[in-house]
């Protein structure tokens, strides 16, 4: 999968599909991972002497590094006696350049909020009523 990074736009549309997929299924998980993209074919890996000289070299790289974002679902296999179906693993990944991080995460939050519809909604009404009651009671 390493070579098939999607563009950010495509990643978002596929991620929306992934959430939709899990929503339709009714249950299941969506995994989102982020890490520094440290594997770079264009530059030589840091030499061992460099690491020895400065063990913390990776805490202050010369240039900002891109961030790798991955998303996947759970694969499952059919099993008798349960309603489990054969589901293929869907894996998505994209690379976000440092200067695009803010824009990316703004959209990421939108997609995430829309996709995670199963979580508990805030119950404003109830709290307000409770508070009023307390005040009235005292």
């Amino acid at each position: 999968m390493a070579d098939n990074h999607l563009s950010n736009d495509e990643f978002f549309s596929r991620l929306t599909d992934l959430f939709e997929h899990s929503r339709k299924k009714g249950h299941g998980s969506v995994y989102l991972t982020q890490k520094r993209l440290s594997f770079d074919t264009t530059s030589a890996p840091p030499s061992p002497t460099k690491i020895l000289d400065d063990p913390l070299w990776d805490t202050h790289p010369e240039n900002p590094l891109p961030v790798l974002i991955r998303a996947s679902n759970n694969s499952s296999s059919k099993r008798k006696g349960t309603d489990r179906e054969d589901i293929d693993k869907i894996k998505l990944s994209t690379v976000v350049q440092p200067e695009q991080l803010d824009a990316f995460y703004a959209r990421y939050a939108e997609v995430g909020k829309a996709g995670m519809s199963g979580l508990k909604k805030r119950d404003k009404k109830k709290k307000k009523k409770d508070k009023k009651k307390k005040k009235a009671g005292e």
């Binding site: 959430f19 899990s22 009714g26 249950h27 299941g28 998980s29 969506v30 995994y31 989102l32 991972t33 982020q34 890490k35 995430g112 996709g115 995670m116 199963g118």
Partner: peptide, 10 residues
């Protein structure tokens, strides 16, 4: 790395 998991379980 940071992994976030959204899971819906029966």
């Amino acid at each position: 790395r940071i992994t976030s998991k959204y899971s819906v379980l029966k």
